[in-house]
């Protein structure tokens, strides 16, 4: 009995050490965001700020157009997540529960997308978005302007599909018993009606998983906004952090404050929905 207790406390101690290594950089980030300029320059300074300068957060949000950055990130995330949830659950259901010609060929073609790195498609996506006719100053042949580049379209529309989302949705709807469709068809429901009335109300876990994966991906995305936008008005929050980085001398207390603000929404969501976050990560491993 005595041995067992000490083994468990050893394990707890080990985990505590690892946890400190993982969390310490984040705590330092928070403490640094509250330090004054002179205290910051002092390398031998203490971990905790001597004077807690909460006004750093106001100053940080006044450096650059943070209202615009947040508005952009929220709009892009809401539409990309909402749209992809509707499209992915709809097509996942169709591939799983409805039989139609070329079903398997189309599905396999969609799965090939799992192999394609976004860094490969971004080159020609860029050219395509630039050449959308009659947008952004383009003529009817797609020349002369910047098309969908530097607009919400470029950041939202390519995110609406996604091979992983379709795969996970199909997997989910395959899990229902076969009699469910029979019951529905006796009832005279069409396939869309039975999706809407029967399957969608039972899709909570699927929507949570897909929603978390997509939200984290889009909210944290740096690569696509970097390539597709160039104006101040279209910057997302992840690009917004570059405002501090680009300056000749980086004001680290303000940069850390802005980084905390940018990270906070997902950290809070993670805190409240840890179980769902974990589940969404695990679900990606089932495909192997």
């Amino acid at each position: 009995m005595k041995l067992r207790i000490s083994a468990n406390s050893l394990i707890s101690a080990g985990l505590a050490i690892v946890s400190i290594f993982m969390v310490a950089p984040l705590l330092i980030m928070i403490f640094t965001s509250l330090k004054g300029d002179t205290e910051l320059a002092n390398a031998a300074g203490s971990l905790l700020p001597k004077n807690w300068k909460f006004e750093n957060y106001i100053l940080a949000m006044q450096t650059g157009q943070w209202g615009t950055y947040f508005k952009n990130s929220i709009i892009v995330t809401v539409f990309a997540v909402g749209g992809s949830l509707i499209f992915n659950s709809l097509s996942g259901y169709t591939f799983a529960r409805v039989s139609f010609k070329f079903r398997n060929i189309i599905f396999v073609a969609l799965l090939l997308g799992l192999m394609v790195p976004p860094q490969v498609t971004i080159l020609t996506q860029f050219i395509m978005l630039k050449s959308v006719p009659l947008f952004g100053g383009n003529d009817i042949f797609g020349h002369g302007g910047q098309g969908w580049l530097d607009s919400y379209y470029a950041l939202i529309i390519p995110e609406l599909s996604g091979s992983l989302g379709i795969f996970l949705a199909r997997q989910y709807y395959l899990g229902f018993p076969k009699d469910m469709d029979e019951a529905a068809s006796i009832d005279g429901s069409g396939i869309f009606r039975s999706f809407w009335k029967i399957y969608l109300p039972l899709s909570g876990p699927l929507l949570a998983t897909l929603g978390i994966l997509k939200t984290v991906h889009v909210w944290n995305d740096f690569f696509h906004p970097l390539v597709y936008t160039n104006s101040e008005a279209m910057r997302t929050i992840q690009l917004g952090l570059q405002v501090f980085h680009g300056q000749y001398e980086i004001k680290f207390n303000l940069l850390m404050a802005a980084s905390v603000v940018v990270s906070l929404p997902l950290c809070i969501a993670f805190f409240f929905f840890q179980r769902h976050f974990v589940q969404s990560l695990i679900s990606t491993s089932v495909k192997g």
Binding site: M22, V23, P25, L26, I28, M29, T32, V216, W219, N220, D221, F222, Q238, L241, Q242, F244, H245, I250, F252, L255, M256, S259, V262, S263, L266, C267, F270, F277
Partner: peptide, 16 residues
């Protein structure tokens, strides 16, 4: 927790 942060926020923290 570090896995929830964006790669940009992570980079900024380590830059400091």
């Amino acid at each position: 927790l570090p896995g929830v942060l964006s790669s940009v926020a992570v980079s900024m923290a380590w830059l400091w």
